[in-house]
Amino acid sequence: MTKSDIILPISDKRNLHQNRAIRIGFLLIDGFALMSYASLVEAFRAANVLSGRTLYEWKHISVREAFVNASNGARFRADAQIDDTLALDLLLVCAAGNPALFRDKRTFARLRYQASRKMRIGGVSGGPYILARAGLLDGYRCTIHWEHRPAFIEAFPQLDVQQGLYVIDRDRLTCAGGIAGLDLATALIAENHGRQLATMVNDWFLQTQLREAHATQRVSLRERYKSTNEKILATLAAMEANLEEPLSRAALARRNQVSVRQLERLFRSNLRQTIGTTYMRIRLTRAAILLKESSIPLVDIALASGFASASHFSRAFKRWHGTPPRALRNAMNKQR
């Protein structure tokens, strides 16, 4: 199939500028996730190629630098800076690493200014964290990458955080990042120019279906733990849902209508671990994410992970990860 085979009509559902391309700005925060950015921009490029028209144009925007580094070290030349006059239909903030460390007040102010002018604004991967810090997600549904999610919820408990791939809520867009950028881009292409073109873009990138916004970000517990035992899976789900106030072994067993001894046997035979070891691993994995992805005080991370004191948390963390929590956070900060 060639682009000359598929000149498509343009829908007027959302695109009010049928005589010109939709203008997109990518605000690239230093260290932004390259995969997340690429899955978006390549989808828009494909829409241009497959339609035989310039449906989308884009530019790269920086905070103040002439060049911005991606997560893999690749350098992008900025076409504009956030302080410049931006004639855009959509501005997408791309970030990664620990977006909680981004505190540029001028950028937050400029984002609020653009929002006040009714510009459509989105955040990708760690980008929703920056939108939230600017106060642009209050009253909106949103999502964020699952790795950032615990810290995000701790920092912004007032927000309505969904678990899907992306959320489009009026003039705010948020995307979990990774290849979910392709899902968001194809949703926008379908909105602007029809589902036929969006499906063709998806097909071009070997995606077998258009994934819906609410599709899960992570593989299922069944796949993650390689277990098909329903009582094991139900117990693991209960553990992940109760981290701040861990459930006792007896409470977990009652939920599955088995004895503690029976549940322990199931865990040992299926996962080769005890209930307590599995639960501790889940809690300390969350703690490690909070340490890496947020600036939340250690005592608050301890409480969020189900520990009554910072000292108990530090001892358990060091036994499990081989390093104290403060040392891990300091090491991560030095890498940024």
Rank of each mutant, 00 (worst) to 15 (best):
S309T: 12
D12L: 09
T2I: 14
A310Y: 10
M332D: 10
S116I: 11
S4M: 10
G126E: 04
G139I: 14
D30S: 15
A302P: 00
I61H: 00
E57V: 09
T107H: 03
R272S: 13
A134L: 08
K334T: 07
I232E: 04
D89P: 03
L221T: 08
I82T: 02
A288K: 09
K105N: 11
V41W: 00
I282P: 02
G73Y: 01
Q217L: 08
A237V: 06
A155Q: 11
A21P: 15
I232P: 02
L252E: 01
A87G: 01
W320N: 13
N242I: 07
H145S: 01
N256L: 05
E42T: 07
S125Q: 02
L131Y: 04
S36Y: 00
D138A: 11
R110V: 02
N192T: 07
I61E: 04
R112K: 14
Q162P: 02
E154A: 15
S227N: 12
P297I: 11
N229R: 00
L86S: 01
S269K: 07
D89M: 12
L188C: 07
P157E: 14
A238T: 14
A234N: 10
M1Y: 07
P297T: 11
N98P: 05
E57L: 07
L92N: 00
I282V: 06
A213M: 12
T274F: 03
R64P: 04
S259C: 08
I232C: 01
M200T: 12
V260L: 05
R103V: 07
A238V: 13
G164L: 11
N202A: 15
R133A: 15
A310C: 14
I24V: 08
L210R: 06
R224K: 08
R23S: 07
R222V: 02
L188S: 04
L8F: 15
Y140C: 11
K334Y: 14
R265E: 15
C142M: 05
I179S: 09
N202L: 13
G52K: 04
H193S: 03
S314R: 05
E154F: 12
P9R: 14
D300H: 13
Q162M: 14
A251F: 00
G135V: 02
S309W: 01
A251W: 00
W204D: 12
T54N: 11
P128M: 15
N72Q: 09
G276H: 10
Q81S: 13
I130F: 04
R265Y: 12
A134R: 01
A46Q: 08
I24Y: 00
Y113R: 13
K292M: 06
P325T: 02
T199Y: 03
A132E: 13
G122Q: 03
N330P: 05
S295E: 15
I301F: 02
S11P: 03
D30E: 15
A87R: 04
N19R: 06
L284M: 10
I121H: 01
G97C: 02
R336W: 01
L50N: 01
A288T: 05
R117C: 13
E212H: 09
L55D: 03
A185L: 11
V201P: 03
I153P: 00
